[in-house]
Every structure is written in structure tokens, then in C-alpha cells.
Simulated scan of single mutants.
Amino acid sequence: MTLTAVASHPARLRRPCWLLAATLATATSALPPTAWAAPPQPGVETLGVYSNVRVTGGDDPHAEGYDCELYRENGQLFGLFYSSQGMVGDTPRGRLQDVRYDPVKRTLFFRAKLTLGQEINRDSGPDGRPSRDLFEFDGTIDGKRLSGSLTHRDGYRPREPGERETVTLKLDRERSAQAREFAPASRKAWQAEDLPMGPQW
């Protein structure tokens, strides 16, 4: 039934407005919760926080794993990558770079520069230097998980093969709700913000 058909036959029984609204609401609720292949929407959408971080240690908690915080603006994905490698607290993080996202195949590639700590070796000298940690993710994403290959390279020697592992980061609904509440107004504003615990390179 269309509105045109109703208007051209006034003698037919018309549905009350509330019934039409209920019908539309039912149809809308049948849509998938996350429309990954939907047309670009204005403003910033919070896609969520994906994580595989494990916390152990009781009174002396330690965390190990990765987090990825994702937003989308005009079809372009942006966000932060975190690496937990020790005591729970301020986690090193870096902005996603070189992002390639295919909403139809749901494939995602990105790089992120982090500084996980200080390194002392033959090249750094006795005073040490901030580490240059380069992460590359290549995999797939949907409304529940981020899965694929994660490579960790030394940013001082980016041509070396590095360490590769297979990871699955699951959507953390509680942290995703927090990210949505504090989502940036725009990608441009987000890029201009200071990044605590960001890379030193």
C-alpha cells in the first residue's frame, strides 16, 4: 500500500496514524543492528571499542592485550589503537593511520605508531631512547569482532619482518557506550586534540 493509493481511493478504510507508525517501527527493528555497508552518514558515528585485554594479578593487576577504538565520519574510519604490556594504568596508544576499509567485504587495514617504553641497546647509547613500536593490522571487522593478523615492528628498523600474531578483539559494549558518550565532534577536532600516552615519534 502506498500513500498515493490511499489518496486516490478515499472510500477505502485508512489505517490510523498510530498503526502506520507501529508498522514502520516493526520494519525498522528488523534491520541489522550495525549497518556496516550503509551509505555515509553525516556527523561522527561510534562503531565501538574492540578488546582482547586480559587482566591478572589480583592486588597487583597486570594487563596484556590490545584495544581498538573506532569511529566513522562520512564513510571514513578513524580511531585509536592501544597496547597493554604491563601494569594496569595509562596505556600507550596511537592514532590509526593509512586506514583502508571496504564496507562490502568488511576488510580493514591500518597502521599505528606507539611508544611502549624506553629501550637501551647499542644504538640508543647508555641513556636509552623512546621505543618506536609500529603495529599493522590486516583483517576483517563486523559488529561483534575485529579479527586478523597483527604485526609488531621496530620503528627504527621498519624493513625487518617483525613479530606477527593472529588476534580477535571482541566488542566491549560497556566501553563502547562510554566512547559514544564522549565521541569527538568531528575527525578534524579529534586530530587536533592532545593524545596522552601517545607515540614519541
Rank of each mutant, 00 (worst) to 15 (best):
D133S: 13
Q191R: 11
R132D: 00
A183Y: 00
D133R: 07
Q76K: 15
R132I: 06
P10T: 10
E174T: 10
R100V: 12
M197S: 15
G86C: 04
R15M: 15
D60G: 13
Q97W: 05
K144W: 01
N52K: 13
F109A: 14
P126F: 08
L80P: 00
T28F: 11
A185V: 09
V44W: 03
D127I: 06
T46K: 02
Y156P: 03
C68L: 06
R159K: 14
S124F: 06
E136N: 09
P40Q: 04
E45Q: 15
A30E: 08
D142Y: 01
T2M: 08
G162A: 05
D194A: 09
A37L: 06
P199G: 03
S84E: 12
A35E: 07
I141T: 04
G48H: 00
G57W: 07
T28D: 04
R187V: 02
V99I: 04
T107Q: 13
D90Q: 11
L171I: 07
V88K: 10
F135R: 10
V88H: 00
G94R: 03
R54G: 05
R159D: 14
M87R: 09
G43T: 03
S51G: 04
A183P: 01
R173N: 04
H9C: 07
T151N: 15
Y82G: 04
S176T: 11
G117A: 12
